[in-house]
Each structure stands twice: as structure tokens, then as C-alpha cells.
Amino acid sequence: MGIFDKLKSGLAKTRDNFSSRVNGLINSSRIIDEEFYDQLEELLILADVGAKAAESIINDIKKQVRQQKLKAPEQVRTLLKDELERVLSKNAASKDMDLYPRIILVVGVNGVGKTTTIGKLAYKFKQDSKRVLLAAADTFRAAATEQLEIWSERAGVDIVKHEEGSDPAAVVFDAIQSAKAKKADIIICDTAGRLHNKKNLMEELKKINRVIEREYPEAYKEVLLVLDATTGQNAISQARVFKEAVDINGIALTKLDGTAKGGVVIAIADELSVPVKYIGVGEGIDDLQDFEPQNFVSALLDID
């Protein structure tokens, strides 16, 4: 299997070389030519931006380079960075959105980090002296409630839970009544991981969403889609279908402490106009950060 051997040696270099690739590329390129663009495109694809999206980004860049008669690769770097930042800043939630009471419905496919993100979010709001209530509406996965319960203890917030196998919408209903009684500022609802192509599971999610709209119209409602940065182009399909079902209005991008870049959110921000709000950078309770387009793009392109 000669192809494997060659690949292996080729890839051995890929990762080590990846950091400061753009810098290297830009510094080593004297002129802006096709090869330069190809390398730029490779970088974007390796960051999971997607081949189609990368192609269209490069085409935009080319056009601008022509129009502005740019000659130096260095100028292209700025151009690319600006372009990506612009896309990612689109529809960004205004920072001072301080609307309470609030309810956050957290959704996503299996294993992306929903429950962990909820633990981190609970802690964050608690630090801001908000009264937080967690709703353990993942009644499906084994020990999901126990997992959230441990996070509620770590964050020092209350939790509403039912038994495994019970109706998740009923958990949310109870949480809302409890929040009203206790005058909680914010409810965060955990939900079971579900693949977006499972019709019945998406229906279940819609039902939870309807309960929120009916029982808690006075609350500011946020639907947060959790995406794993390791995920490739399927994240677009996830975002599209979850948006159709429950109208997501923000993304939490997790596991950015690994080597994955999460570039697929660029296509999502562009095509679906759903902004990234938070990023997960570890398994600790304070490993959650507000999303900053500038920092994200710098990391994506390995430039500073």
C-alpha cells in the first residue's frame, strides 16, 4: 500500500507545519500568483471552512486584489482576515443584551458538549449574580440527569429533574413554573443529543419549544446550538435543520482546545446568519469564553 506510506510521511509534517503556515506562506511568497491562492485555499480547507466556501472566499479575494491592484501578499492577509471577520461579525448578538427573565434552550447532536456547556454557562451567570435554574430535559440518555446534577452542584445553582424516560417537555414545564415561583432570572434547559435527520426527535424538540413559548412568553428566549469544532461540513446541515425546527439564534462552538479549527462556522454565519456566541476551550467550569471574531480568525489562520 504505497499510497499509505506516502500519505503518512506527508501528513507527519502537516500538523507541525500548520502553525504559522499563513505567515510562512505570505513571507515566502513574493508575488500573488495562482500557487499562492492554492495554498491559501488549502489552509482554509484544512481549517474545515469547506471546499466550496473556500473557493468562493478565494474568488472574492481575487476580485478585490484586482480591483485594488494589490501586489503584496501581506495585503492579501489583511484582506482575508477582514473578510472572514466581517462574515463572522454579521448578526453578532449585541453584547449588552441584558434581558431577564431569560430561558436558554440548548440543543445539538450527540456528544458535542451540551451538558458541559450548560454547566459552564450556569457558572458564568451565577458569577454575574443571576439566579439560575437548570432543567434536566435530557431524560433519554443514561445518567444524563446525574451528569447535569453534578454540574449544578459545581456551579451552585438549582435544578429541576424528572425520571429517566419521562417527557422532556414536562421537565421544561415544571422548570418554568418553578422559575416563576422562585423568581429565577434564567433557566437553562439541557436536551438529549439528537441527530438532526431523525424526524421524531426533532418533533420532540419542537414540542419543548412550544411549551416554552406558551408557558413563558414574558421570558427572553434563546436557542443555543452546540457545535463540536471537530465536526466537518455536516455542521452546516446540523445548523440548517435545527434552525428550521427551533429557530436557533446562537451557536456555542466547543472543543477549540484541540487542534480542530471549527472553520465551518464561517459557512454557517454566511449562509444561515447564525452567529457564534460562545466557545468552549476545555472541560473545566470556567473554560467558556465569549466569541471574538478577531481572535477566532487569527487562530484559524494561525496569524497574530
Binding site: 501528513l11 502537516t14 500538523r15 484544512l46 474545515d48 463540536d228 471537530t230 461540513q233 455536516n234 480542530a260
Partner: peptide
Amino acid sequence: VDAMTGQDAVNVAK
């Protein structure tokens, strides 16, 4: 390995 993994799959597997 999650079948939805993107470009990073090579780094992980390696």
C-alpha cells in the same frame, strides 16, 4: 471516531 469529524481526523488518528 465520530463519522462527522472534519479535517482534524488525521491529526487525531495519527
